[in-house]
Amino acid sequence: MAVLGIESTAHTFGAGICEKGRILANRKIMYPIWDKGLIPAKVAEFHAANTYKVIRGALTEAGLGVADISGIGYTKGPGLGPCLSVGMVAAKTIAVKNDIPLFPVNHAVGHIEVTKQAFHVKDPLVLYVSGGNSQIVALSDERFRHYMVYGETLDVGIGNMLDSFARAAGILPAWGSEVARAALGGSYIKMPYTVKGMDFTFTGLLTFATRALENNSVRDVAYSMQETAFSMLCEATERALLLSKKKDIVVCGGVAQSDRLKQMLGSISRENRANLFAATNDLNADNGAMIALVAEKMQDSGQSYAVDDCGISQRYRLDSVKITW
């Protein structure tokens, strides 16, 4: 029996199917981003219009019917409320109509577990970097087994910073991977570098970089901002690695698609005799398969939820999730 996962945190609506940890299908559609940020209500409307097509596409890709689905996972949060609601309603509709158990999944746990599964890594230090999040976590060995936060951003997520900068600099489409492209061949301008223990902040850097655009080329500013921000993440990660004494590093989330970030983390792992693991870009981007994967683990480890308890939470913190597998 297979498990269906539905993801609708932000710009991506995805549906994936897993069976015994193996991904059978992973379909998604992304709200087109050009020069502006996301208006949640509009994105939700887009998701709602594509819900049937994406879920049906995933079932077809896996060669399965609804009768073959033994559990349905959906993203409970964190994310944009209107977008999360669309995924939740879709999941509930299929679950209630066909009497299938429902599982509310934490989005960050999805990114982490899908990478662990892909490389059979058991207990890594995790750098989770996406639009709204930037956290360094690892599993705790307390009785309430959960991902403990070693360090995190004290203001915005790194992806948000890169996207905001892209909009200010007129980089199109306005998102992080285009900032990386704009940064190629740039020269360094000194920028504020803020690490507090294992925490870090990005808004000061963003303000500085935005102002620096007045007197410098987009290329130099993009290069300097990206190098500074990634160095901050890497310094905090290296400190957490030494403190936690972990042997494996997982980098996941949308910004884990950055080759430069992975290159820097590779250097840290070599110098500390640790292993670095990063999933392929289609799994680091938001997707339904990771939600299906976690839902399957939740189901197999005996979790169960009443339909009425399956809601959404825009601020669903990673460290509040009980890990039962």
Partner: peptide, 13 residues
Amino acid sequence: RKNYRIEEIDSSI
């Protein structure tokens, strides 16, 4: 010296 960061950032830090 930290090889992950560029020389300019590394030496100034």
